[in-house]
Simulated scan of single mutants.
Amino acid sequence: MTNERPDLGFGGELDGFDPKAWDSATKKNSVPRPPKEATMQMAEAIGFKSREPKLPVTVNHKIDRRRRTGRNAQFNLKARPETIEAFCRIADRKGWGLGETLEEAVMLLERELSGAK
């Protein structure tokens, strides 16, 4: 077995190649890019249809009820949709988070059941 590599015929063309000269020639003749808006207008004018998703016009913003409070225990339960809506409505009306609303409800129930007012 021989240690010499077979000649593939590319060596002669690449011997005189200077990457620095090639890179600077590209920079001299380069044309600046047009703004994205102009490109989009030209594309629409000739009938090009983009595949990029368009953002929805109306966005339904949900109320963020999460706060950093130190509450770290999970409490999951099932309830009727009407009960959950009423619970959230009370929280929104008072400006409380859901954990705060639960604490207030438990406190009121304890007060009611103990007879203290």
Rank of each mutant, 00 (worst) to 15 (best):
31 V>S: 11
73 A>E: 13
92 D>M: 01
39 T>N: 13
7 D>L: 04
109 L>P: 09
77 L>I: 06
98 L>T: 10
9 G>F: 00
88 C>I: 06
66 R>T: 07
99 G>T: 06
94 K>Y: 04
117 K>I: 05
86 A>W: 05
25 A>C: 02
27 K>R: 04
7 D>E: 08
13 E>F: 11
59 V>D: 05
111 R>A: 09
13 E>M: 13
20 K>I: 03
55 L>Y: 04
19 P>R: 02
110 E>H: 07
101 T>C: 12
81 P>E: 08
13 E>S: 12
26 T>D: 15
70 G>V: 02
38 A>G: 06
1 M>C: 01
17 F>I: 07
80 R>I: 09
42 M>R: 14
82 E>S: 09
15 D>A: 15
107 M>V: 14
91 A>T: 02
4 E>P: 04
91 A>Y: 00
18 D>V: 02
112 E>Y: 03
103 E>R: 11
31 V>Y: 05
54 K>Q: 08
46 I>M: 01
45 A>L: 01
117 K>T: 07
105 A>H: 05
26 T>Y: 10
68 R>T: 13
109 L>Y: 12
38 A>M: 00
77 L>S: 09
41 Q>T: 11
79 A>L: 14
69 T>P: 06
72 N>K: 10
116 A>D: 07
107 M>K: 14
27 K>M: 03
83 T>W: 13
103 E>A: 15
79 A>T: 14
97 G>T: 06
5 R>K: 07
42 M>P: 08
61 H>G: 12
2 T>E: 04
79 A>M: 12
25 A>H: 00
34 P>G: 14
28 K>R: 05
16 G>S: 15
45 A>E: 01
40 M>N: 13
95 G>M: 01
53 P>S: 03
91 A>V: 03
113 L>A: 10
72 N>F: 07
109 L>N: 08
32 P>A: 03
115 G>M: 00
83 T>M: 13
46 I>G: 02
113 L>E: 11
103 E>T: 07
